[in-house]
Design a protein around this nucleic acid. Structure first.
Lengths: 155, 155
DNA sequence: ACTTAATCGTTGACTTTATCAAGAGTTTAA
DNA sequence: TTAAACTCTTGATAAAGTCAACGATTAAGT
């Protein structure tokens, strides 16, 4: 592991052995920063960002999420959901309907056009995911998904 | 996997089987959101946030990072580094010194006080990490660290 | 040597995202 | 039936992200 003298080392390699580079907090932050930048580029042609895509995805899931549920699941403030749904609704991609069981809540559901766009968008994010995980084999990808979901959902 | 009728299901469990919940992009976003919120709380008593902590960590690494290197490694714009270093420097935790090899660059190094605070802060983030990964055994934690660093650094 | 181009830190303008309090309408509990 | 709690919404404010431009410095080209 000796460094060849005179070799130019790029920034990433240079700090790969830093204490920070071993912290999960930092690794997830960097991963998500690179990942969302890439995803945003892939989604831009469809008029979406990762945020609006996430809302659209849940709206088209058939699970009839309320805005509050969207906020909680996406780790956002309820007030941040409002303009997101406004934009999607303005484009005719989702609909707000009062929950019959509790008229305080509004259920967000994807329209026909919303579902069509979502299928395209899903392909885009799947492509981004493939690029991100290119250095992992199939089994490792499954493992990563499992471990991450266990720490993302268990607290 | 049947849902007991009448059972109240919390939001997270309700959407656990959504397509979105299986996406790495979403899992890392949620993980880092929860993680940085927790880390910020633990760092607050020390007058730090995850951002300033990350800069302090690299400054105290002995690797003599320049501001540009900090920006690249932390996935930030160079202009975002300026106020971060300003604040740390104002608190006497780091120093800016012109790189003798290239006087355009400024090398950021931790002061004595900076290193002392960093050791405390490192304990705090380690505690946060332990909480975050409580549902994973030691071997799984090592695996997660390895897989994440491979996708965080190889592109 | 000398001009041109490129790089680094910095500033400033601007947009986006985050945080928080308060209000109108609805439901739940006392 | 009143009081408390909950949901969506609005608005104010702070924080973070994006981008172009500038002075100082270095590298490249001729």
């Amino acid at each position: 592991m000796a460094t060849k003298p005179g070799t130019i080392m790029n920034t990433i390699d240079r700090f790969l052995t830093s204490e920070l580079a071993g912290e999960i907090e930092f690794l997830t932050a960097r991963t998500r920063s690179l990942g969302s930048a890439r995803a945003n580029k892939l989604l831009a042609p469809l008029g979406l960002k990762v945020r609006s895509y996430s809302v659209l995805s849940l709206a088209c899931s058939g699970m009839a999420p309320t805005q509050r549920e969207l906020a909680e699941f996406l780790s956002l403030d309820p007030s941040q959901i409002v303009p997101l749904v406004d934009a999607l609704e303005g484009d005719g991609l989702v609909e707000r309907t009062a929950d019959p069981n509790d008229r305080r809540s509004k259920v967000i559901t994807g329209t026909k056009a919303g579902e069509q766009l979502y299928r395209k968008a899903r392909k885009a994010t799947a492509e981004g995911e493939a690029v991100a995980m290119a250095s992992l084999n199939q089994s490792e990808q499954e493992t990563l998904r499992d471990l991450l979901s266990r720490i993302a959902f268990r607290d």
